[in-house]
Design a protein around this nucleic acid. Structure first.
Length: 887
DNA sequence: TGACTAATCCCCC
DNA sequence: GGGGGATTAGTCA
């Protein structure tokens, strides 16, 4: 590069050119920052160029051109030239001589530094020039630029021509040749040292700074390119995932009901779900990392599938299927699944659910993944609904005129909520109830109980025939139950043969809403999970139901329970329909009442003040004779309670024909059609006598209040009025373990008056309980030696017993109070008690389990059936007579 | 308007 | 002091 070329270029643009020699001189007022003692001063020779000059000559540009310097004496004086070019490419550019400060302000310029060292080294001069001029303040730059902007007649070509560095912002590029060389070196060495850079700068006539910057920028560029490449790869992947996500979402948005082929409705994806998904992805990564580490440690690869780590949990929370294969943990479930295809008769066939964790043929990982996403959506929608249902009063809930109970305003409900499990099946009726109560348990403990199927069943023994957790979709976050989501199966019961067991498959989702505030929601999943190979008939669907629990300062919790279900009412005997529709059967009142009673029992048992009345001491010698060894120890109390619990569980199972036992229904002609008789074989169970067990149960309506009925039946002194085991006389209470503040909640040991030696060896274990929703009297004959063991803390599992007893519930608001079903002397729509003067009555279930043959292989005889049928009829008649309610 | 490039500023090792 | 990220500014397609 040469300045000659530049000059040529500038001249090549054509146009008039004025070159004026400008000797430097002192005393020019335009000087800026003129150092004292300057050797030379710029001397302005051109007349002052005015704005008007430029305005009137748009093509004018002013250039201070550094020319070839060979003929100039730069040591004494820098020569400068002003080139005025009209319409040419000439540019205002440079000044010769080092250290020259130039002001370009409408042609007035120059300030010269004293030490001129311009020995022909153009580049150096330019550098020095820049060092002083190029770093001027922005204002100055702007000012100077605005000066040239005023000369905007300068063509682009003129500016191109200025391949000189004096003006900092002057655009230029390194020549292709220079770049080629720089690139070549960059390929070999992206980080040249100073020596290499110096060498290159000389060779390419560039400053070392330029070379340095070039390399720096080149490296940055490489990095940017690399990032861009990576970005594009990631974007591609992202697009792919997004497309996949869209298609999945689409599938979820427009689910097709496999029942009717119409659209099924699922709620929107919420923020919580997004969080859960993120959390899930994070956990999955964590699992992968842990597996990788474990693999290194064990020296063999570890699969991240749930069945390869830890205990055989039904599933892992880590396979929620965000881009995962969705098959994690499947094999772990299959072996623990309690339900088999041949389980039970008639009832399990109503299962509409694919046995969880065991994929049906053809179910792909994607299907599972979609299914899980749908579960999640459903759970979140259900939670939302539950909380609103629990917290909203009118107009969603209105007080009924009779009884003051809250009733769901269905119109308002339909307006407020989207049906999250689809529309109500034809022929189904709705049952909705809400109840709030104070319970002596804290929220965390209650949540733990609800989320553990065993503990849940223990908490609601007479309501839950059996239950299991069939799949854990999420086990919660941060070691808590918050976010826990699981699939459950349950058989819910009302203690009567006239009410079929409700078999439900539902999601249970737990969420912490605030400190000390939790909610657990259940919602049926039958709308999502359909197994084409199983009948799709479902007798009950649970709409979002559950509880909101809030800790109270006194150790209690405020529990608001919402129970909302749709069921096939035709399966329910008319006698029980009012009860069910009032919510006292399967509804919130019963859940709350049971919860309160059970928690009170737990609190009493855990406190030191366990109230035990023992009548074996010397203070009551006149009451009964009993060996002193029957005194109860603390562990004995526990054993006795455990035995009583088993007895009551078995009683319920017999009444409701739940699948806990494999009952065979009997349809013998001699049996009253309203008495349900069933048999089963008892083999290898030390808890009951071996042989053929016959169960007979019936339910009748009595025009007596539940409380009166309960008090009558549990009173050992009145036992002879209905119990053949009483031998016609009163019974005595030998031991009493209180289970609640109400004396009606207790376990006791009764002894009949001894008629002969044989019977004197028998005791009666009895459990009674009562709460707002109903009451229970269950008893079973047990023998003295066995109870002796139990009362000393022995294992109650070996005490053989068969329970009998009564379940009492109010007949329900609006009940028409029909005649009994046992007597069958009235249709179910009978008019007994009808009208405003009707007496509030009770529904009494009577049930017996007796051993009809000690050989399991024996055949059931007609006599046995008739005997039990008579027994049950007689008992009912006796009760009616005693209570003077037989018409 | 965005990509490209030369150059600058500034932080941190 | 230099590397490198962030930024600026000029240019071009």
């Amino acid at each position: 590069m040469s300045f000659g070329g530049f000059l040529e270029n500038s001249t090549g643009g054509g146009g008039a050119r004025i070159v004026a020699d400008i000797p430097y001189s002192n005393g020019v007022g335009n000087n800026h920052n003129m150092p004292s003692g300057a050797l030379a001063q710029p001397r302005l020779v051109t007349p002052p160029l005015t704005k008007s000059m430029f305005n009137s000559s748009p093509g004018l540009s002013l250039g201070l051109v550094r020319h070839t310097f060979s003929h100039l004496d730069l040591t004494s004086l820098s020569a400068s030239f002003i080139v005025l070019s009209f319409g040419s490419k000439t540019d205002l550019l440079s000044v010769c001589g080092a250290g020259v400060r130039m002001l370009i302000s409408l042609g007035y310029f120059f300030e010269q530094q004293p030490n001129i060292d311009g020995q022909g080294d153009v580049a150096r001069m330019a550098e020095n020039f820049e060092a002083t001029i190029g770093r001027r303040s922005r204002d100055e730059e702007h000012e100077s630029r605005s000066g040239s902007e005023n000369m905007d007649g300068a063509s682009g070509d003129d500016q191109d021509a200025a391949d000189n560095p004096p003006r900092k912002k002057r655009y230029h590029r390194h020549t292709p040749q220079q770049i080629q060389e720089l690139e070549a070196l960059f390929k070999e060495c992206p980080h040249p040292d100073e020596k290499q850079r110096l060498e290159l700068s000389k060779r390419l006539c560039l400053e070392t700074r330029q070379v340095k910057f070039w390399f720096q920028n080149r490296r940055t560029q490489m990095k940017t390119q690399l990032e861009r490449h990576e970005n594009s790869l990631l974007r591609q992947e992202n697009d792919k995932l997004r497309a996949e996500n869209m298609s999945i979402r689409d599938a979820m948005r427009n689910p097709i009901c496999s029942n009717c082929g119409g659209p099924a409705i699922i709620g929107e994806i919420s923020l919580e779900e997004q969080h859960l998904r993120i959390e899930n992805a994070r956990l999955k990564d964590e699992l992968d990392r842990v597996c990788a580490l474990a693999g290194k440690f064990l020296g063999r690869p570890i699969s991240s599938l749930a069945n390869s780590i830890g205990p055989p949990l039904p599933s892992s929370s880590l396979e929620l299927g965000v881009g995962s294969n969705g098959f994690g943990g499947l094999s772990a479930v299959a072996t623990t699944l309690p339900l088999g295809p041949d389980f039970g008769v008639g009832i399990s066939s109503a299962l509409s659910v694919v046995p969880p964790g065991r994929p049906a043929a053809g179910v792909t990982g994607l299907d599972r993944s979609i299914e899980r996403s749908m579960f999640l959506e459903l759970a979140l929608a259900a939670m939302d609904e539950l909380v609103k249902m629990a917290q909203t009063d009118e107009p969603l809930w209105v007080r009924s005129l009779e009884g003051g109970r809250e009733m769901l305003n269905h119109e308002e409900y339909m307006r407020t909520f989207t049906p999250c499990i689809g529309l109500k099946p034809n022929g189904f009726v709705t049952e909705a109830s809400r109840e709030t109560g104070m319970v002596i348990i804290n929220s965390m403990a209650l949540v733990e109980t609800l989320m553990d199927s065993n503990r849940w069943a223990e908490m609601f023994p007479c309501m839950i025939a059996r239950t299991s957790t069939t799949d854990v979709i999420s086990s919660g976050m941060g070691g808590t139950r918050n976010g826990s989501l699981q699939l459950m199966h349950a058989e819910l019961q009302v203690l009567s043969p006239l009410v079929p067991v409700r078999e439900v498959n539902f999601l249970r989702f737990c969420k912490q809403h605030a400190e000390g505030v939790w909610a657990v929601v259940d919602v049926s999943i039958d709308s999502i999970r359909e197994n084409s190979s199983a009948p799709t008939f479902v007798c009950c669907r649970r709409l979002p139901s559950g509880c909101v629990v809030q800790d109270m300062p006194n150790g209690y919790s405020k529990v608001t329970w919402v129970e909302h279900a749709e069921y096939d009412e035709s399966q329910v005997h008319q006698l029980y329909r009012p009860l069910l529709s009032s919510g006292m059967g399967f509804g919130a009142q019963r859940w709350i009442a049971t919860l309160q009673r059970q928690c009170e029992c737990l609190a009493i048992l855990m406190s030191s003040a366990v109230h035990t009345r023992d009548h074996t001491d010397a203070e009551s010698p006149n009451k009964i004779y009993l060996p002193p060894a029957l005194a109860i120890t603390a562990s004995g109390r526990r054993s006795m309670l455990k035995l009583a619990q088993r007895m009551t569980d078995n009683f319920c199972a017999g009444v409701c024909a739940s699948t806990v036992h494999k009952w065979n229904k009997l349809n013998a002609g001699n049996v009253d059609e309203d008495v349900r008789v069933m048999t089963r074989k008892s083999v290898d169970d030390p808890g009951e006598p071996p042989g053929i067990v016959l169960s007979a149960a019936t339910s009748v309506w009595l025009p007596v209040s539940p409380q009166r009925l309960f008090d009558f039946l549990r009173d050992e002194r009145l036992r002879s009025e209905w119990d053949i085991l009483s031998n016609g006389g009163p019974m005595q209470e030998m031991a009493h373990i209180a289970k609640g503040q109400d004396h009606g909640n207790c376990v006791s040991l009764l002894r009949a008056g001894a008629m002969n030696a044989n019977q004197s060896s028998m005791l009666i274990l009895q459990e009674t309980c009562i709460d707002a929703a109903g009451s229970l009297v269950v008893y079973a004959p047990v023998d003295i030696p066995a109870m002796h063991l139990v009362m000393n803390g022995g294992d109650s599992a070996y005490v053989a017993l068969l329970p009998s007893g009564f379940a009492i519930v109010p007949d329900g608001p609006g009940s028409r109070g029909p005649g009994t079903t046992a007597n069958c002397n009235n249709s179910s729509n009978g008019a007994v008690g009808e009208g405003p003067t009707r007496v509030s009555g009770s529904l009494l279930t009577v049930a017996f389990q007796i051993l009809v043959n000690s050989l399991p292989t024996a055949k059931l005889t007609v006599e046995s059936v008739e005997t039990v049928n008579n027994l049950i009829s007689c008992t009912v008649q006796k009760i009616k007579a005693a209570l003077q309610c037989e018409s």
